[in-house]
Design a protein around this nucleic acid. Structure first.
Length: 301
DNA sequence: TAGCCGTGGCA
DNA sequence: TTGCCAAGGCT
């Protein structure tokens, strides 16, 4: 092996070790961490945490765990109850898919959360990240957990890039995989520690480099932290969009205990009829709402 | 494969 | 105040 490769590998190992050491003293004590939660609890937390901050997830997660402590419990519930209990976490399709996931766990896996990436990624609502996360955090197994936090940490510290590209590349994934410790426990620790570093220190907007265990080695910091302001992020439109109207319809139906005449409802008077109809069609197609009475125009979850 | 899908807090 | 963005997945 060439001397350069040995040196790079040693440097990688040193940086990984520094992140693990940092996490041991700075990591948060979250209820789904540290082996105190069941694999099902970990899975539920991962779905809830998709694009949603920890502080908003935690109370809802506790309610779900008390109400549906195992997949079989959620599978026996009504989809509408799952969507309602999802509350305002956002992306209610996640609630529907999690409910479907519980059913699939009962049907295909005897009500048990499987241990392999391949089995997990085949379940509703579980993609590459979540499957890898459940392998690591629910079962202590080795996987390549590559979320936006880990991508940002690696991109900055190793490559001097302010923010990750919109999509993963083969090369990026290969490099991330090469950094994962060989042993199961070390791999799982690296996953949670590198994610935590991205969540608490190496954040997207205000990086706290003075607190970072990688500050001495960080390529991005060494270059003067370039490229943060001109970051080409696609701005998410919101006001007046279908997305907003869908959210308002869902909020209305979540709060209702009986079917609601949505198109005639006072709180939606400002919405163009055409847009409201389009959103209702979309929600019906997504299986998030049901038409109760076509003549009266009433809907339910 | 871009585009789409909620929500709320913060700089 | 408002744009940014937070542990993605699906089509």
């Amino acid at each position: 092996m060439p001397h350069e490769s040995e040196s790079a590998a040693a440097r990688d190992a040193r940086m990984v070790a520094a992140v693990l050491e940092w996490f041991a003293q700075a990591g948060r004590d979250l209820p789904w961490r540290g082996g105190s939660a069941t694999p099902w609890g970990v899975l539920v937390s991962e779905i809830m945490l998709q694009q949603t901050p920890v502080v908003r997830v935690e109370p809802v997660w506790r309610e779900w765990m008390a109400r549906w402590p195992a997949p079989v419990d959620l599978a026996a519930a009504e989809q509408a109850d799952a969507v309602r209990a999802w509350g305002r976490l956002g992306y209610p399709r996640r609630a529907k898919r999690l409910w479907e996931c519980a059913g699939a766990l009962v049907d295909r896996h005897g009500g048990v959360v499987p241990r392999t990436y391949e089995e997990l990624v085949a379940l509703p609502g579980i993609g590459d990240y979540t499957a890898a996360a459940v392998v690591a955090f629910a079962h202590g197994g080795r996987s390549v957990v590559l979320d936006t936090n880990v991508r940002r940490v690696i991109g900055r510290a190793w490559h001097g890039r302010a923010l990750p590209a919109a999509h993963q590349t083969v090369g990026e994934r290969a490099h991330a995989a090469s950094l994962v410790p060989r042993d199961d426990a070390g791999a799982a620790e690296w996953a949670v520690a590198s994610m935590e570093l991205g969540a608490l220190v190496c954040t997207a907007r205000v990086a706290r480099c003075d607190e970072c265990p990688l500050a001495r080695e960080c390529a991005w910091l060494a270059q003067g932290r370039p490229g943060l302001d001109l970051a080409p992020r696609r701005t998410q439109p919101w006001h007046g969009t279908d997305r907003q109207v869908r959210g308002r319809v869902m909020a209305l139906l979540r709060a209702a205990s009986s079917p609601v005449n949505v198109t005639g409802h006072a709180t939606l008077e400002d919405v163009e009829p055409g847009q409201l109809d389009r959103c209702l069609e979309g929600l019906l197609a997504d299986g998030l709402i049901r038409l109760d009475d076509a003549d009266r125009g009433t809907y339910t979850l």
